[in-house]
Design a protein around this nucleic acid. Structure first.
Length: 400
RNA sequence: GGAGAGGUGGCUGAGCGGUUGAAAGCGCUCGCCUCGAAAGCGAGUAGGUGGGUUAAUCCCUGCCUCGUGGGUUCGAAUCCCACCCUCUCCGCCA
């Protein structure tokens, strides 16, 4: 969520950002609502001020045993008008809030402008894709042949876009989770978290999944719980509605969780195998930082995720997403793409983003720069470190 | 599922319907003391959102906020209703 005061004083900059992101939020309507809200607010507040003064005068008179019926009658009259104004203000607040929640983050100035993924820019490569003297098999062929992946039985248990791992496949998945967590907690300095994956509405709103992307999440029927689409949600919300002492920043967390995605808009894409499934495993990295450090922290976060692929010997490249391809809440995102031989191209395996104060404002996560100073919003970052299923797919196809 | 207790500032914790936006303590900031520190003493210290002023701060000022939302009243942290959440005990359970 953007700061309304920022929007009010930088409307052109926000308008440009919305265009670059192909967002269709009606900024003029927002500004008009804000204008009306403030003028009504002034009116309502002056009436309330009069009411407060009159009520205090009533108290004074009554203490002296004097009559106050005239004042009491006056306030009764004022209250009618206050009620109408408050009703209108409530409506205005709701409309403004709804618009604010629908506005994506403003991209950082270093983000390339582009319409879609074709505008992304490669920033570096690591490793040499292995050249095979034959047509490399895809993991959805190799896995079932080896008896370690079973898509047919997964469909029987659940449906399409699920996978069963068996024997060495299951063990590989488990080993990779440990391997990644050990890198982040021992070679790097992340604190391991094991969070709930049933998430309430406030937390889903805090990180930006709701209200705009409700159709992408699984909702528990009869409960106000959503299945976590990523550990980013529970881990970032660890500090929702908190004021973090400045000396505790930066905070680094890592968490393994199963992730659940409805993939409502992805029908027909990557339908084979375990690249795009409804349930997958992922190790996530989350940072809370001071605003002035967040961009250098994004660089080191990305390197921390890359370390996993380097130690596995999987070739990859890093791209910076352009304005048209970025996630809703992000100000800047690097995707790490692993080489997938059977696709003969790089496939996303990690996405590392700086959200600046966008999530922090939604989730009310603040810090105190110094003791006694006013609380400010932190910057939040996160990245996959990395997607486990896609790592299995890349390993199978690259090294089998 | 059954029974009970409770949600108040950064934290702990008081609060007869009317200078209580809130006692006290802790923490923190500044000052005094000190060679320096501790202790002690003094002062200050909630958030949100508007208006005025400003280059921007500072500052002045209004309104709202004691879990959330309604209600009663001239006036609600305080009374009433609904909801949410936390804790304790019992039951069930990996």
């Amino acid at each position: 969520m953007l700061d309304l005061k920022f929007i009010r004083s930088n409307p052109d900059r926000v308008r440009r950002a919305l265009q670059n992101r192909r967002s269709e939020v009606d900024l003029d309507r927002l500004l008009a609502l804000d204008e009306e809200r403030r003028s009504r607010l002034v009116e309502a507040e002056s009436l309330k001020s009069r009411r407060n003064a009159a009520s205090q005068e009533v108290a004074r008179r009554k203490r002296r045993g004097e009559d106050a019926e005239d004042l009491m009658a006056e306030v009764r009259g004022i209250n009618e008008r206050i009620k109408d104004l408050d009703e209108r203000l409530r409506q205005l607040d709701a409309d403004i809030q709804a618009l604010l929640l629908a506005i994506p983050n403003v991209p950082h100035e270093s983000v390339p402008i582009g319409p879609d993924s074709s505008g992304n820019v490669e920033v570096r490569r690591w490793g040499e894709p292995r050249v095979f003297p034959f047509e490399p098999k895809a993991h959805w062929d190799l896995g079932p042949e080896l008896g370690i992946l079973d898509f047919e039985r997964a469909a029987k248990i659940s449906g399409s876009r699920f996978v069963v791992m068996r024997g060495a496949g299951a063990r590989l998945e488990r080993a990779l989770v440990n391997f990644m967590l050990d890198i982040h907690t021992r070679q790097q300095s992340y604190v391991e978290i094991w969070p709930p994956v049933l998430i309430n509405r406030a937390s889903m709103t805090g990180t930006g999944q709701l209200p705009k992307f409700e159709q992408d999440a699984f909702k528990c029927q009869g409960y106000d719980y959503y299945l976590a689409p990523t550990a980013e949600v529970p881990v970032t919300n660890l500090h929702r509605d908190e004021i973090i002492p400045g000396e505790q920043l930066p905070i680094y967390y890592t968490a393994y969780t199963a992730c659940f995605r409805a993939e409502a808009g992805a029908a027909g894409r990557d339908t084979r195998g375990m690249i795009r499934v409804h349930q997958f495993d992922k190790v996530e990295l989350v940072k809370f930082t001071r605003p002035e450090d967040s961009y250098s922290e994004l660089e080191s976060l990305t390197r921390d995720a890359e370390a996993v692929l380097q130690q596995l010997g999987l070739p990859y490249r890093v791209v910076v997403l352009c304005t048209g391809d970025m996630g809703f809440s992000s100000a800047k995102t690097y995707d790490i793409e692993v080489w997938m031989p059977s696709y003969n191209r790089y496939v996303e395996i990690s996405s590392c983003s700086n959200f600046e104060d966008f999530q922090a404002r939604r989730a009310n996560i603040r810090y105190r720069p110094q003791a006694g100073a006013k609380a400010e919003f932190v910057h939040t970052l996160n990245g996959s470190g990395v997607a486990v299923g896609r790592t299995v797919a890349a390993l199978l196809a690259s090294t089998a």
